[in-house]
C-alpha cells in the first residue's frame, strides 16, 4: 500500500472515524447548524452550547459521512470544548489553512497544541477532492456560531 494512503488514513483518523467522540444530540445546545456536501453525500449537524460569555461549554455532532469527515468532526469537538469564541475562530482559520496547504506562519498564539492534535488531518491537502470532507464540520460549526441554519460545500 502506498505511503500517501497511510499518511491520509492514520490510525487516529480510523479510530475517530469508527468511534466518533461527542457523537450525540445536545439538549442544552444554544446554536446548531446542518452541513451538507452534496458532491459525496456527507451530512452532519453540529450542536454548540455557548455560555453567556460565548465560551464553548459543550459541542457535539451527528450525521453520516466518510471516515475523513466523521474523524474531522470528532476531533473538532475535542479541540473546541472550553474555548472562547475568538480562539475557536482563530483555530478554524488555522485548520482551514492547514487542510488547503495554505499555512503561512506558525499557529495562532495559544492554539499550537490544539492545532498539533488536528495535524493528523493535514494529509488531505494532497487530495483536492477530500479537503471539503475534512472541513465540512468546521464550516458547519462556523455557520452555527454565525447563527446560520445550514451550510453547503461543493
Amino acid at each position: 500500500m502506498s505511503n500517501e494512503l497511510r499518511e491520509l488514513y492514520q490510525e487516529v483518523i480510523l479510530d475517530h472515524g469508527r468511534t466518533p467522540r461527542n457523537f450525540r444530540d445536545l439538549e442544552k445546545a444554544t446554536a446548531q447548524a446542518f452541513g451538507n456536501n452534496p458532491l459525496c453525500g456527507d451530512q452532519l449537524t453540529v450542536y454548540l452550547a455557548l455560555g453567556a460569555d460565548r465560551k464553548v461549554e459543550d459541542v457535539t455532532f451527528k450525521g453520516n459521512g466518510c471516515a475523513i469527515s466523521v474523524a474531522s468532526a470528532s476531533l473538532m469537538t475535542e479541540a473546541l470544548k472550553g474555548k472562547s469564541e475568538g480562539d475557536v475562530r482563530a483555530l478554524y482559520k488555522a485548520f482551514h489553512a492547514m487542510c488547503t496547504g495554505e499555512e503561512t506562519g506558525p499557529a495562532p498564539e495559544g492554539e499550537d497544541d490544539a492545532l498539533e492534535k488536528l495535524r493528523v488531518l493535514s494529509g488531505v491537502a494532497e487530495y483536492p477532492t477530500r479537503v471539503k470532507c475534512a472541513t465540512l464540520a468546521w464550516h458547519t460549526m462556523a455557520a452555527a456560531l454565525d447563527g446560520e441554519q445550514e451550510v453547503t460545500t461543493e
Binding site: 500517501e4 494512503l5 491520509l8 488514513y9 453525500g41 466518510c66 471516515a67 477530500r130
Partner: peptide, 13 residues
C-alpha cells in the same frame, strides 16, 4: 467497513 468516498480515494491510488 468503508464509505464510498474513502473507497474511491483508495482505489484511485
Amino acid at each position: 467497513c468503508a464509505h464510498p468516498h474513502d473507497i474511491a480515494t483508495i482505489v484511485d491510488r
